[in-house]
Design a protein around this nucleic acid. Structure first.
Length: 628
RNA sequence: GCUCUUGUAGCUCAGGGGUAGAGCACUUCCUUGGUAAGGAAGAGGUCACGGGUUCAAAUCCCGUCAAGAGCUCCA
């Protein structure tokens, strides 16, 4: 189990490499602690490190901090900053440090009746050979390896952001502490810019825009994490599926359909049941079995045990599509001449995510993967992976998501958890590496990041405001071919085991569309827009003329509507803008006479008049080429 | 799953122990207009659900469900 950032104790070397900003944030965390300590002297502090966009300090005390307290705390922090206390480093012996902690003197301004309990614990975690240091700012002494900025006066631009609870040391078995989050920057300008970015992110939130544009709905009566795609959202999804399907065709894939459930035995073979039972919907026992068991007065617990042990048969909602695709592959005999076999499906899967993990479209319990499984010979692995990478590249390029990084997940050389012999792994890793090189993008090799069944390549996309999302993935798999005993007949007339490749350029339709909404801030390129054109007659008199244009566009497959409301154009434009419709066509007396339309683009504004046919050609072209 | 916060009209939200409010959206009428909001009237709610306290609960308390933030998790 790799250390999470949370648990990982920074080495002194790593600490010395802390950037200036991290130093500043860490120091601001001490300022925060000083302030809290002055207001609530019973406060016990745990850890207070810098984090990605700021810092936090974990605190345990009687009073429950709420955002209403922020003003008061910030006021007190201001005083500490104004006092411009120097941060002084003092090296002490383990015994001295322990003595201070026992007197409650650590993370405090005075000795206290209760010991600094968390600091005692942290002290015990410090390796024997490491120097123990205390950092002082004014009377506030804290066990801390540093480093810090020179004085509290350097911490001028900060803001408390939120308070939440966190498990002590990140372990769910430990008690929860109050974690106060803040952010800090070199100066107030940078702080303001950061806050602006956060505001921008809020405006782009796919849950907000999804509601505004009527894209999707989650209903309590249906269930948590289950997405209802509304007509507008469905247009986007369908367009994306058409887009992918076109490329699947070109790349020689076969599209298939499979049911949403499968027998428990199928997943016993694949190894997913009962090993991953906690993250799956509970199994569906067979009708007959249910009846017999209920007649016998069998409890739920017993039933569940019998399902797990295989005494009782049943079905499961599929948590992945692989087993179904494998069974399609296995339904024929295969010669090496047939390979590679590429089976693709927009396959819906169900996983039991913990309720607290769910959120909007990005973390759900039922989702549709743009999934495919490739069955090929060892020799074909590299080329097939290149094909997969090509597809991901086309997808991301078409959507203007050019800012991404590529991770090549390799096995951990020291671990033995991996299936398949190491020679095969060497070859597969080399194939992945070479394929990644052909991408022309930098990639990072990450040992230990491979799945137990094979190495993989992940695409991590950065959206317009700098957040990262793991989307596309390509994985080599030696495990399932083994478990299911897949075979093909080679040129030598002997049977061989094919290699499987899993790949999903979007990851899932739900997550991808969620990310796309935020990426485009709802302003989808024309080909993806649920409504591509809205015709705005200047008054009722021009509704007929509008209808004629409507028919022309509709015949060309353009998604168009006429706004016949009894409103002025100004109001109609406003609504169309709010709906993020790419083109507004305005029709009044001038246009009617000349058989033209006045074009207004949602971003470019008034583009003047143009004959209807010319506009039609232009937009049809724009849609067909899927331009941004 | 854990901690905290929240749940009032289709949407965004105010109010808060004495029978429900605004703006937008919706319907009707007036208006027939030129690039981001013309005017008027009307309709619309079991204040998430269940229980308790009270003469009286949308309001206070408990529970359930759901959402948000963070933690833990994501084959």
């Amino acid at each position: 189990m790799p250390d999470s950032t949370e648990n990982h104790r920074k080495t002194l070397d790593e600490r010395n490499q802390m950037s200036d900003l991290e130093r500043l944030r860490h120091s601001t965390a001490h300022v925060l602690a000083t302030a809290i300590c002055r207001i609530w002297p019973d406060a016990q502090f745990a850890a207070g490190p810098p984090v990605e966009n700021g810092f936090y300090y974990d605190v345990d005390m009687e009073h429950r901090i709420s955002s209403d307290d922020f003003e008061k705390i910030e006021e007190e922090m201001k005083k500490v900053v104004k006092e411009n206390q120097p941060f002084e480093r003092m090296v002490v012996s383990r015994g001295e440090a322990m003595e201070m902690a026992k007197k409650g003197r650590l993370a405090a301004e005075t000795e206290r009746s209760t010991p600094s309990q968390f600091k005692i614990d942290l002290l015990n975690d410090i390796p024997e050979d490491e120097e123990i240091s205390i950092f002082k700012n004014g009377d506030f002494w804290d066990l801390c390896a540093g480093p810090h900025v020179g004085r509290t006066g350097n911490c001028k631009a900060y803001k408390l952001m939120s308070v939440a609870s966190a498990f002590y040391k990140g372990d769910a078995a430990n008690p929860q502490l109050q974690r106060v989050y803040g952010t800090a920057f070199k100066n107030k300008t940078e702080l303001a810019e950061h806050l602006e970015r956060l505001e921008e992110a809020k405006q782009r939130d796919h849950r907000k825009i999804g509601k505004e544009l009527d894209l999707f709905h989650i209903d309590e009566a249906v269930g948590q994490g289950l997405i209802l795609w509304k007509p507008n959202g469905s247009v986007i999804r369908q367009e994306l599926q058409n887009f992918i399907s076109e490329h699947l065709e070109r790349q020689g894939y076969s599209q298939v359909f499979t049911p949403h459930i499968g027998k428990l035995d199928l997943y016993r073979t694949s190894g997913h049941f009962p090993y991953y039972a906690d993250s799956q919907f509970p199994p569906i026992p067979e009708r007959e079995a249910m009846k017999v068991l209920s007649d016998e007065g069998c409890s739920c617990g017993e039933l569940s045990n019998k399902l797990e042990s295989g005494e009782v048969a049943g079905f499961m909602l599929k948590p992945m599509n692989c087993p179904h695709h494998i069974k399609i592959f296995q339904s024929n005999h295969h010669s090496y001449r047939d390979l590679p076999v590429r089976l693709a499906e927009f396959g819906t899967v169900y996983r039991w995510e913990q309720s607290g993990e769910l959120g909007g479209m990005t973390r759900v319990r039922g989702f549709t993967q743009d999934d495919a499984h490739l069955f090929c010979t060892e020799d074909q692995v590299k080329e097939e992976i290149m094909g997969c990478l090509e597809l991901v590249k086309i997808v991301l390029g078409t959507l203007g998501m050019d800012d991404y990084r590529v991770r090549v997940g390799l096995r951990d050389p020291d671990s033995t958890k991996y299936v398949g012999d190491s020679e095969k792994w060497d070859r597969a890793e080399q194939a992945l590496r070479e394929a990644a090189t052909t991408l022309g993008t930098d990639f990072a090799e990450e040992p230990g990041e491979a799945a137990f069944y094979g190495p993989k390549i992940d695409f991590v996309v950065k959206d317009v405001i700098g957040r990262e999302w793991q989307l596309g993935t390509v994985q080599v798999d030696y495990n399932l071919p083994e478990r299911f005993g897949l075979e093909y007949v080679g040129a030598d007339n002997a049977t061989h085991r094919p290699v499987m490749i899993h790949r999903a350029p979007f990851g899932s339709m739900e997550r991808f569309v969620g990310v796309l909404i935020e990426h485009f801030a709802g302003k989808f390129p024309t080909w993806l827009s649920p409504e591509q054109v809205r015709i705005l007659p200047i008054s009722e008199k021009f509704v007929d003329a509008a209808d004629v244009v409507y028919e022309t566009l509709r015949k060309e497959g353009i998604r168009v509507k006429v706004d016949k409301a009894d409103e002025k154009v100004g109001a109609k434009i406003r609504l169309a803008q709010l709906d993020r419709i790419p083109y507004m066509l305005i029709i009044g007396a001038k246009e009617q006479e000349s058989n033209q339309v006045s074009i207004r683009h949602r971003d470019r504004g008034d583009e003047g008049a143009m004959p209807v046919d010319e506009f039609t050609n232009r937009i049809v072209d724009e849609v067909r080429s899927r331009s941004l």
